[in-house]
């Protein structure tokens, strides 16, 4: 090891540096607990024509005894788990590596980052992007289906909620760092590929707000499922505009 510099306490920071990781910890934990509960609950996911995004596409298979959500959620779950934004969020708030900038936790030499199993698998983020993209197609299908009531066009609160959910998840996907790389970031000479350059610029614009899309879409997915659950369980009635 190289010679270290002046050592002092964990941090000399005097501001409330612990607030951001704490809020992230609470928010992500709440999402994980809610989603897990909904998977285990395995009911109230369909209130025609609304289907919960946690159960879409609905795979009711004879040979699968557990919740059908498990067959789906590995894809968007893996996409978020390996997402570059969420990695920052949970490395800071759950693993405390580091908890905040210039707040030192850990010992010299005992860190290996994403160089070993299992964290080396973070490099497969693009494959989860592909899988989550397939699920996203079904979510758009569900969103359009949510405007059809008894084979007629209609609009309910659920229609709007499902449409908003699909749109936000699309923005989250389109602002993905891996997608930005695939669409044009890997090129060194943009002038030879003007279309990809244009797309890369557009995706780069989305990418600047990736954190916003990550949180907004996460919250709306939960609220969409909650709305479908409340309607399906009879706790509330869907409000129809048309």
């Amino acid at each position: 090891m190289a010679q270290a510099g002046v050592q002092h306490s964990m941090t000399l920071r005097t501001d409330a540096w612990w607030v951001a990781p704490l809020v992230t910890f609470v928010m992500l934990s709440a999402f994980v607990v809610y989603t897990t509960w909904r998977i285990i609950e395995n009911q109230y996911y369909l209130a025609e024509p609304y289907l919960s995004p946690l159960y879409s596409p609905l795979l009711l298979l004879d040979w699968w005894p557990l919740s059908p959500a498990i067959l789906i959620l590995w894809a968007p779950g893996g996409f978020r788990l390996t997402c570059y934004y969420y990695r920052k969020a949970y490395y800071r708030s759950f693993v405390l590596s580091p908890p905040a900038c210039a707040v030192d936790r850990g010992k010299p030499g005992e860190y290996c980052g994403e160089t070993r199993f299992p964290l080396i698998l973070q490099n497969l983020h693009r494959y989860f992007f592909y899988a989550a993209g397939v699920v996203l197609v079904f979510l758009w299908y569900d969103a359009f289906k949510a405007f059809v009531f008894d084979e007629k066009f209609g609009v309910g609160v659920g229609s709007i909620v499902l449409l908003l959910n699909a749109a936000l998840l699309t923005m989250y996907s389109l602002s993905c760092h891996s997608f930005r790389h695939m669409i044009g970031g890997k090129l060194n000479v943009f002038s030879k590929c003007p279309t990809r350059f244009m797309l890369w610029k557009a995706v780069s614009g989305f990418n600047e707000h990736h954190m916003f899309w990550a949180w907004f879409s996460l919250i709306v997915v939960s609220l969409t499922d909650l709305y479908v659950r409340l309607v399906a369980s009879g706790a509330i009635q869907d409000v129809r505009f048309i």
Binding site: Y84, R87, K88, Y91, C101, G113, T115, H177, S178
Partner: peptide, 30 residues
């Protein structure tokens, strides 16, 4: 692989270079 993209480098840069989003992550993808 040692970088776990917690973005402190970006936060502290006095030139506001988007170190993580524009350099490190694109290199990780490469």
């Amino acid at each position: 692989g040692f970088c776990n993209i917690t973005k402190c480098c970006t936060e502290v840069c006095p030139e506001n270079i988007q170190i993580t989003d524009n350099a490190i992550i694109p290199l990780k993808e490469r």
